[in-house]
Amino acid sequence: MSTQGERHPQPYWNPYVAGIGLGLVLLASFVVMGRGLGASGAFSSLVTVGVQSIAPDHVAHNEFYSEYIGDGTKSPLKDWLVFEVLGVFVGGFISGSLAHRVTKVVEKGPNISTRGRLLFAFAGGGLMGIGAKLARGCTSGQALTGGALFNVGSWAFMMMVFGGAYAMAYFVRRQWQ
């Protein structure tokens, strides 16, 4: 990569090359760990720890949270996915800095206010959180990982994600266009 144009963000890579890179990381994870990638699980651990610190009894009696607490012998944050997601933040920052793409900005179309966009972001995140937990994984853990493994549930999930997003796209077009 050339270093000319110091402050200008460089263009993104050819998507197929980036995809191969991503696929090789996923493959390496299969080979080294015997498991794929994930993301939403780490935030579940984080939420569980948060709730636990406020209401430990509540967590102990809830099947969902107690799954992330494990047997209580170690912190729920000492978890594979939590460390992987920490890496994702770091890896994104490394790539972004190298290409001068780190900028404090709100991503939105021209026809929506910043506040409106942030409300949408929060609402979308909320739906995503619920959906990911219901589906036992998100785009990383189900679509990508399960897709490569021919997991039946993951393929059904992936079709629904694209279907749902295309179906909803028309209604939120003002946000992006």
Binding site: F120, L127, M128, L134, F157, G163, G164, Q175
Partner: peptide
């Protein structure tokens, strides 16, 4: 649950603009 979850996640994707990893 995975079909319904996928649908909600799809909605969330286009409304929020991201998925958890991205």
């Amino acid at each position: 649950p995975q079909v319904v979850g996928g649908l909600l996640l799809g909605f969330g994707f286009v409304i929020g603009g991201y998925c958890p990893g991205t």
